[in-house]
């Protein structure tokens, strides 16, 4: 059977992206680290541009590597600033987020002006363009997504303990710092997976919104994780559909509009339902 390859790439890409970011976003939300995801996503932009400038290639693996390196540098900056100063985490993240993103945009504009280098569609990384996904990119997304899902499944009990009660985890001898690094690393991977489709600007919504929509309906961490994956991939598909059919609409904003609707609908429905429950059954 012949399916249009663009449509196939987009559907697969959004399913992978939605599930992976829903799953990792659940942990980010429960650990109150939504802003960390936002910082890592914005910090990925200069990495993408610099990787292109150094290699002259736009092979997905090279750009992803660049994004991961600059995301990791931003994360280290963040944690060393938090260790050595008394600044509020939100403030530090705002500084890291805006300065790395500023660097990325500046480099991107400079590249755009230089006559020799072709822009290579790097501006797609700002707001995302699912229609530009090629099979190579989807394959890389699939492999990285599978790594995330397998590691979360293997370390589910460890990540649950880390998210619920890290101090207790440490007191029983778990290497909490290592577990935290692995979880943050996976968060970074999930962000990288979404860069072409959603773009750096709105990637954090892709992490946070599905988890927020799933939270009121979940009685267990497994339920919340799966619920967020379903919300993420559904909204991903809907947004990509709009972006494919309506000319000039970037995918990221389209997906985020659906995510916003999902969050509001979830909270309103929950409120309605709760009002009809007897008091003792209300969560």
């Amino acid at each position: 059977m012949l399916i249009d390859s663009t449509v196939r790439n987009v559907v697969l890409g959004c399913l992978i992206l939605g599930s992976v970011s829903g799953i990792l976003g659940t942990f980010a939300v429960l650990r109150r680290q939504g802003l960390v995801g936002d910082t890592l996503a914005h910090a990925a932009l200069p990495g993408v541009v610099i990787a292109f400038m150094l290699s002259g290639s736009k092979a997905p693996l090279i750009l992803i590597l660049g994004a991961s390196v600059s995301g990791w540098i931003a994360m280290s900056l963040l944690s060393s600033a938090l260790r050595t100063t008394r600044l509020d985490p939100g403030t530090v993240m705002a500084v890291v987020l805006s300065s790395t993103f500023g660097l990325g945009v500046a480099l991107l504009s400079w590249l755009q002006k230089s006559p020799t280098a072709s822009l290579a569609g790097l501006d797609k990384y700002l707001l995302g363009q699912a229609a530009s996904l090629v099979s190579d990119q989807v394959a890389v997304m699939g492999i990285l997504g599978a790594v995330c899902v397998i590691l979360v499944a293997l370390l589910f009990k460890e990540f649950k303990l880390l998210s619920f009660d890290p101090v207790f985890a440490k007191s029983t001898g778990w290497p909490v710092a290592i577990l935290e690094s692995v979880l943050t690393g996976l968060l970074l991977v999930s962000i990288v997976v979404g860069l072409n489709t959603v773009g750096v600007v709105l990637m954090s919504a892709m992490l946070v919104a599905p988890a927020v929509a799933a939270r009121p309906w979940s009685r267990s961490l497994t339920g919340m994780t799966l619920g967020a994956a379903v919300v993420g991939s559904t909204c991903g598909l809907l947004g990509a559909g709009v972006s494919l059919t309506v000319p000039k609409v970037p995918t990221g904003p389209a997906i985020v509009v659906f995510l916003g609707v999902a969050v509001v609908a979830s909270l309103v429905l929950r409120h309605e339902r709760r009002a009809r429950l007897p008091a003792w059954r209300r969560p």
Binding site: D165, S171, T172
Partner: peptide, 14 residues
Amino acid sequence: YVPQRSAVDWDFPT
């Protein structure tokens, strides 16, 4: 070790 109750988020889905 039993930490103080306030050490965790009791809204955690579990």
